[in-house]
């Protein structure tokens, strides 16, 4: 082994503690005797169920929208491509609450599309649909980023061979390109799922907090913190466990299938997951 300076190890330990210690602190506050009751209360189960359902739907949306986007970014060249890439990745760095406000002025009652939809009798803001839209908005870049990288790594050589064997572009895409990047697609989808599950700011801003309709698990935790800290801690632990499982699965997929991407996205997702930003002012709670 190449010797590293001793101080690197010391600083690294501090860094690791910085992540682990808060989790440990939280676990020490779990009210174990009541844990079962706390996580199975009516509001908890409703929130967990809603979170899982909406996250699954938004992950599916991320795949449907993100795969073509990643293909366009990785396999073609057109004017404004760099701008498009920057815009698609914007939700990664945008404060979620800002995303929520942007969505509100798009799909809200007086929003860009909202007023048209209102005429058609469709109201999106403060509905479960709004939760899904908010989650998709913030989670989509994870899938696009992960998949675009994998597409570039795989290259076009297999696709060229498939074409010279007589395969039409759609056949090449479905039988060669997508199977080759499947590990990245799966791990990207898992990261999107994790991000959707942890979504708070955009959801609260755009969808509000109505039990069973828009109050997802992170919102439930934030509310319970005021009235029942034990329930908040118990539910937080549930979210941590789900996050650990998702990250573990995603890592397992990338390692087993030989995809080297995912590390940077994972750290980003964890940062986002832990960033429980404050609710915006004037929230309809």
């Amino acid at each position: 082994m190449l010797g590293l300076p001793r101080w690197v190890g010391i600083v690294a330990s501090v860094g690791a503690l910085f992540i682990v210690l808060p989790l440990v602190a939280m676990i020490t506050r779990v009210n174990w005797p009541e844990f079962g009751a706390l996580v199975t209360s009516e509001s908890s189960v409703a929130a967990l169920g809603l979170s899982l359902r909406t996250s699954v739907v938004s992950t599916a949306l991320c795949v449907v929208l993100g795969v073509p986007l990643a293909l366009l970014l990785a396999r073609t060249q057109f004017a404004g491509q760099k701008v498009l890439r920057a815009l698609v990745l914007l939700p990664l760095v945008l404060p979620p609450v800002v995303g929520g406000i942007a969505l509100l002025y798009t799909f809200g009652r007086r929003g860009l599309l909202g007023s048209t939809l209102e005429v058609l009798g469709i109201q999106i803001a403060f509905s479960t649909t709004a939760v899904v839209i908010a989650q998709t908005f913030v989670a989509l870049p994870f899938l696009v980023l992960s998949l675009e990288g994998a597409l570039r790594t795989v290259g076009t050589r297999y696709e060229a061979v498939a074409a010279t064997l007589g395969a039409k572009p759609t056949t090449v895409l479905l039988r060669v390109t997508l199977p080759l990047v499947l590990p990245a697609l799966i791990s990207g989808a898992m990261l999107s799922f994790a991000r959707a599950l942890g979504e708070f700011g955009a959801t609260l801003t755009f969808a509000g907090s109505l039990q069973g309709v828009t109050r997802t698990l992170p919102l439930e935790i934030y509310l319970q913190r005021e009235t029942d800290p034990d329930a908040a801690v118990a539910l937080s632990l549930v979210l941590v466990l789900v996050a650990v499982v998702v990250v573990g699965l995603s890592r397992g997929v990338s390692e087993r299938r030989g995809s080297e991407r995912g590390g940077s996205e994972r750290s980003l997702s964890e940062r986002r997951l832990s960033e429980r930003d404050q609710p915006a002012r004037g929230m309809p709670l």
Binding site: V161, A163, L165, A167, V172, P179
Partner: peptide, 21 residues
């Protein structure tokens, strides 16, 4: 004429067998 309609097959230095098949 795009590659898939040419009736021309290419075998490269690396066989590039599709790893998932």
């Amino acid at each position: 004429v795009p590659p898939h309609e040419r009736g021309v097959s290419l075998l490269a230095q690396q066989p590039l067998l599709f790893p998932h098949l």
